[in-house]
């Protein structure tokens, strides 16, 4: 009974018109909570203590790490949507992975640039072709490739099927990014928050990091819902214009 209710609720959400109604209801709340979390996160990021070795550069972590987490989470959301496209052929799944790609590219860019700005004072170099940095750069290129593929084709459902295959093939990069610091000898440090045995960083740094990570995650979901809504509207405009052209053709 509970399962069938859950399935019904999910199917309701998968209906574009119901999705638009739900989006209109939750977006103001989501945006307000995101803004509040960013205010708290930024306050903590600049008021907590610096590290005894890294000094104040540890503050770069509060934007670098959440952006890097999101670059991988966004790709995972796209991979789930790609399964929705290929297995259930659901149009909302097509819209979901198309809308997420530019967001993922932006968060990956933030992670790469802030990582480089952190690397210069701490490692003495802006960039090094080690496993972690290279695999994240490959992720950035994957995002750009998926955006280009989506825009290269006029038929949205054909573009969605092709990009879904590309997304699922590219998903192999996500565990490579995550475990690159364990599998290879890299300049980048190994995981210190999401690891077996719990976080190894001090609470002083963990608190602002988690608040900023939550703020970034909610920002992603707010923008993703808005981008899905925009894409649904874009497709409705295209359909209505086609109908108008057909009507005009019949009348003439």
């Amino acid at each position: 009974m509970t399962e069938s209710l859950a399935i019904t609720k999910f199917s309701d959400l998968a209906n574009p018109t119901r999705f638009l109604a739900l989006a209109a209801r939750i977006l103001p709340w989501l945006a307000a909570v995101t803004a509040a979390l960013f205010a708290v996160g930024l306050y903590l990021a600049f008021t907590t203590q610096g590290d005894y070795q890294q000094g104040d550069t540890v503050r770069i972590m509060y934007v670098h790490v959440p952006a890097a987490w999101l670059s991988m989470m966004c790709y995972s959301v796209m991979a789930l949507s790609a399964i929705g496209t290929l297995v259930w052929r659901h149009p909302l799944a097509d819209v979901s992975h198309k809308a997420a790609a530019p967001l993922g590219a932006a968060f990956t860019l933030i992670a790469l640039v802030t990582g480089s700005l952190w690397g210069r004072p701490m490692w003495g170099t802006w960039w090094v072709w080690d496993a972690r940095l290279t695999s994240v750069f490959v992720l950035f290129l994957m995002y750009l490739g998926i955006i280009a593929l989506n825009r290269a084709m006029d038929d949205p459902s054909r573009a969605a099927r092709l990009s879904a295959v590309l997304i699922l093939v590219g998903f192999v990069n996500i565990p490579i990014i995550k475990f690159s610091v364990n599998w290879w000898n890299t300049l980048h440090q190994p995981a210190s928050v999401i690891r077996l045995g719990g976080p190894t960083i001090d609470g002083e740094f963990l608190r602002p990091l988690l608040v900023m990570a939550l703020a970034f995650t909610l920002l992603f979901f707010t923008l993703h819902i808005m981008a899905i809504r925009n894409e649904i509207w874009r497709r409705r405009v295209a359909t209505q214009r086609r109908m108008a052209a057909r009507l005009a053709g019949r009348e003439s």
Binding site: T57, I60, I110, P121, M226
Partner: peptide, 27 residues
């Protein structure tokens, strides 16, 4: 210490995020 690297990081992250928000809202 290292104010240039810290403020540039936050500045670039802020600009990219604001561009993303503006692009989504205007679209």
């Amino acid at each position: 210490s290292h104010a240039f690297y810290i403020y540039t990081s936050y500045g670039i992250a802020g600009i990219v995020t604001l561009c993303l928000i503006a692009w989504t809202v205007l679209d």
